[in-house]
Amino acid sequence: MHLVVCAKQIPDPETPASAFRIDAATNRVVPAPGLPLVLSQFDGIAAEAALRIKEGGTGHKITVISLGEEQAAAAIKQVLAMGADEGVLLRDAAFEDGDSHTTATALAAAIRKLGDVDVVCCGRQAADWDMGQVGLILAELLDWPVAPLAQSVEAVAGGVRVRRGVGDGFETIETSTPAVVTVSNELGTPRYPRLPQIMAAAKKPIVTWGATDLGLDPAKLGAAGRRLVLERLALPTKGGNVRLIEGDTPAEQAAALVAQLRADRVL
């Protein structure tokens, strides 16, 4: 089976709010100084899902694709170090400032160019914009079935089986391949590559493709092709008027809190 993992590099999503900055002129996030860009968490989990399939059988191969700037190669290398086989960097000025649709358009073209792909694993959403669209649009563009929000992914004869959460319960679904799967955090923690694997990954091939390599019209990509236009990015307003409940002992604090809640008629 040929598996593809789509991986995005993003500013660390657990950057504390106090270190989070926006450049109002460009509507962009200013990465906190000293905090490196990271592989989007859910994409690491998507890689873990693909690796579990690879290890559960023989003859499986994993290609990791990232659309981004030159430094996005680091995200590709991380997935290669986890155990993927080959990398593709989609890099072109024409890809910049696009939306989910233009990103999915480039990824779909790359997957078609690879030719023999059976399963594409995407994170359920990128942990920067939290849109959760690319995997689903990709499935539509390729006209493949999609199994979203997977908590486990298994290869079965001619297809994949996915367990996922729905409302208060769970369901197990199956679909034939080729198919797209989007992966959620319940799948488990992605493996942590060790030094020998990181060294080995340095020798694995990464090719770079631009719009022309993919046979795509630049007018349909990036800022020129976007359908959803970011108009403004701002910091949220916060309450910030917390009252600390006084008391010399936990019992006094608890009594003061209960008195306050009763006065507020909350309890």
């Binding site: 999503p13 914009w129 959803l228 236009v229 108009e231 990015l233 949220p236």
Partner: peptide, 16 residues
């Protein structure tokens, strides 16, 4: 909509 996990608020318009 909130973006960056709620650290930012993003406003969008539609071209389509």
């Amino acid at each position: 909509r909130p973006a960056y996990g709620g650290n930012a608020i993003a406003t969008y318009t539609f071209a389509t």
